[in-house]
Structures are given as C-alpha cells and as structure tokens.
C-alpha cells in the first residue's frame, strides 16, 4: 500500500501557464515532497506499531491484574455480534471484549469487562471484575473520565462508593437471558439490596452514570459469559 497515491493536490491554482516547464517542475516537486512525507509517515507507522500495541497490552494487563488479585495468566475474548466468542490475538477489536484471568493453578479467577456511559462532562469508561462462581461484581476501576475535579471524580477514590463493588449482586435471571435485578444507583445511605449502588452525595450524576454503565454492560454481556463459561474456564 503506497502512501504517495494520497498526495494532496495543491490548493493553489497556477497562473495561466506561461511556460510548461515551470508547471512540470512544480508537479515534480510536489510529487517528491509527497514521496518523502509518505515514506516518513509509513516508516514511523510501521516502527511504532509494535510499541503501541505493547503499551496498550501492558495497561490492560495491569488493570486486569489490579481487578483480579493473584492473576497469573490472561486470555482475551472478543464477543461476536451473534453472541459467540473468539480468542483475540491482539486488543484491536471493535466489539465488546472479555478479559479472563486465571490463577497459578489455571483455575478461572474471574472475567473483567468494560462498561461506559455518559457522565456529567463526558463519557466515563470503567472496567469491572465479574466472578462467575459468586455471580457478583468483585472489583471496579474507572479507566477514563473527565468529570469535575473535586466532585464527579470522587467515583475513582471515595472509599464508601468503591465498597459497593466489593460484592455487587449481578446474578442472572432464571432463563439466563439477563440479570435478575438491574444494577440501580440509590441515594447515599439508602442501599438495601445487594444489587444497589450507594451514590456519593455531591457526585450523584457521576454515580448514576456508573450504575447505568454497569447495568447495561452486565445485562448484555453476563449472559454471554455464562453461556460460554465452560470454554472460558478452560481458557480456549
């Protein structure tokens, strides 16, 4: 694939051709400049491809390790539109991804999934650990947010809020098509059920966004995780 085919046409229109030699010279110059630029870009692109992928993998691995303490081996699955799963070779995948983590003996510790929704300022992206044996969310981390510092960004640090996700009930309904109870965010101090998220007062909108994100993600993806649990447990 050649970069130089994309060389832009010069926006400057040449004046009524006084001599063809000058326009030939002009085209030749633009061509060679485009060629040099194309070469430079392609070289950089090729050269940085591997480090970029490695960086992304390291960040993901670290997040998964943080959410699933004791993890030794990780396998990444991509969820296909039809509901099947495939093992991914690299992280570049358009659909939802499942990060399965295994301990030293090879037993499945849990699956880390992604969830995002719109917060106060922009989209909040989070990752959470799901334990199929406990049927619960056991860990949670905000990976990207632009919420108001001092207010909305408490969702990354508030200990009471984070305590919600040490064991958040997300068991599936009887026929396994969705979660039995939707994850709901409630006003601070009014949490009664294990599937409710206690909001942070002063960061209600951000807390609700987290609840909505988790609800959407658990509804869509946990049935798929459970349907393929046998495969995921074996790591294939």
């Amino acid at each position: 694939m050649s970069a130089t085919t994309q060389s832009p046409k010069s926006p400057a229109r040449k004046p009524p051709a006084t001599e063809t030699a000058s326009s030939v010279k002009m085209i030749r110059l633009m061509g060679s400049v485009s060629l040099i630029c194309g070469l430079l870009i392609v070289t950089t692109y090729r050269g940085t491809l591997a480090p970029i992928q490695r960086n992304q993998e390291i960040i993901m691995k670290e997040t998964v390790a943080e959410l699933l303490p004791g993890v030794e081996r990780q396998v990444v699955y991509g969820v296909q539109p039809a509901g099947g799963i495939t093992v991914l070779k690299n992280l570049d995948y358009a659909g939802p991804r499942l990060f399965a983590g295994y301990d030293a003996s090879g037993a499945l510790l849990g699956v880390v999934l992604e969830a995002s929704d719109r917060g106060y300022a922009d989209v909040i992206r989070t990752m959470y650990a799901y334990s199929p044996s406990k049927q619960a969310i056991t860990g949670f981390k905000v990976v990207e947010l632009k919420e108001t510092p001092g207010l909305g960004d408490k969702i990354t640090s508030d200990p009471a809020f984070l305590a919600n996700f040490r064991h958040l009930d997300v068991r599936l309904n009887a026929d396994g098509t969705s979660t039995a109870h939707p994850v709901t965010t409630v006003k601070q101090g009014t949490k009664k059920n294990p599937w409710e998220v206690d909001a942070i007062s002063g960061a209600t909108i951000s807390s609700r966004a987290v609840g909505r994100a988790l609800d959407k993600s658990t509804r869509d993806l946990l049935p798929i995780v459970n349907r393929h649990l046998g495969r995921i447990e074996k790591g294939e």
């Binding site: 994309q6 046409k9 692109y45």
Partner: peptide, 17 residues
Amino acid sequence: LHAEYLRIIMFIVIIAS
C-alpha cells in the same frame, strides 16, 4: 484502504480545498 495514518494530512487538505 487501511491507510488511517494519512488521516491528518487528508483532513487538512480537505479543509483547505
């Protein structure tokens, strides 16, 4: 064309034209 690395150049040319 799998040529996403030309995006910045492409966009700036489009805008100028």
